[in-house]
């Protein structure tokens, strides 16, 4: 049976992709952000995951309002990052893991999650930037695991509740641990932390709330399910709802986790950037 090694969270801000390309790791603006990653790199080198479940939110590339799924799971041989509107160069495709995708979809639909399965899926910066952060040169990194993208709707309300997101993760964890292959799996929860791009409140950041979330997501995620969706918008900012991805990731890890590293920095672009690596008990 497969094993879930742990979970990693990170912001997925498009500007990060740019900074990586320009190797601005020691630039004064970027250094406090990139300093969050060496321990993650070391952990990945040591544990060598075979599969990566990349839980992200699409920002208007893979899905439009004509068909907006609450939870979508990719089930393709590969995933391409198409042009998001800024003419950024396309990377080579990320290799998929369709046999794992279908195993997850079968298990989660049986478990009463109403999945939208995607046999074609263009992935945006929400998926790509974390891959580049964790596997430098991705997808051209010899350690690049095969990927399953999972996307939750944070574009249009109603978005899923924090409880549903955590429960999604729990069901995902059950699915992964029942995959009959002696494989090692890492789960990414990308997006957040607090930020707001739109309206007169644009630029809103909430350090106190982020710290509350960072603290509880490690040791007491159930506590966070008390937050209503409108409270999440109020306290994390309109786009801070991406924290749902962290909840989904966390649910899949189980109760017993060890925090390996944590980083928090304000601001990167408009966003409070948070990084967390949680290892599952062996």
């Amino acid at each position: 049976m497969a094993k879930v090694l742990g979970g990693i969270t990170t912001s997925h801000i498009p500007a990060v992709g740019n900074a990586i390309q320009k190797e601005m790791y020691d630039d004064p603006y970027w250094k406090p952000f990139f300093d969050g990653y060496p321990k993650v790199h070391a952990w990945i080198k040591e544990t060598k995951p075979d599969y990566v479940i990349n839980i992200y939110n699409d920002h208007g590339l893979g899905f439009f309002l004509d068909r907006m799924p609450t939870f979508a799971i990719g089930a393709a041989h590969e995933y391409r990052n198409e042009d998001e509107g800024w003419g950024l160069p396309s990377l080579p495709p990320f290799p998929g893991a369709p046999e794992l995708s279908w195993h997850i979809i079968e298990s989660m639909v049986a478990d009463e999650f109403d999945i939208t399965s995607c046999q074609e899926l263009a992935v945006d910066h929400g998926f790509v930037v974390p891959m580049q952060l964790f596997w430098p040169g991705a997808p051209n990194n010899p350690d690049m695991p095969r990927a399953v993208p999972i996307s939750a709707n944070t574009v249009q309300h109603p978005i899923p509740t924090l409880k549903r997101a955590l429960d999604f993760g729990k069901a995902l964890g059950r699915a992964l641990r029942s995959f009959p292959e002696d494989a090692k799996i890492v789960i990414l929860g990308t997006g957040g932390l607090s930020h707001q791009l739109d309206g007169e409140r644009a630029g809103f950041i909430n350090k106190e709330f982020d710290q509350y979330c960072l603290e509880n997501i490690v040791s007491n995620p159930e506590e966070l399910t008390k937050i209503t969706r409108m409270e999440l918008v109020e306290k994390a900012g309109a786009q801070g709802t991406e924290f749902l991805m962290w909840m989904m990731m966390r649910g899949a890890l189980g109760d017993d986790v060890t925090e390996i590293t944590r980083n928090y920095h304000i601001p990167i672009s408009n966003t409070a950037a948070g990084t967390l690596l949680l290892e599952c008990a062996a």
Binding site: P98, E99, S101, W102, E106, S107, S117, P180, E181
Partner: peptide
């Protein structure tokens, strides 16, 4: 594509389950 382990399907003669 190989789909290990999730073979919950029962055999229904003359019927192909259109799955993943």
């Amino acid at each position: 594509m190989d789909q290990p382990g999730y073979d919950y399907h029962i055999d229904i003669p003359g019927t192909t389950i259109f799955d993943g």
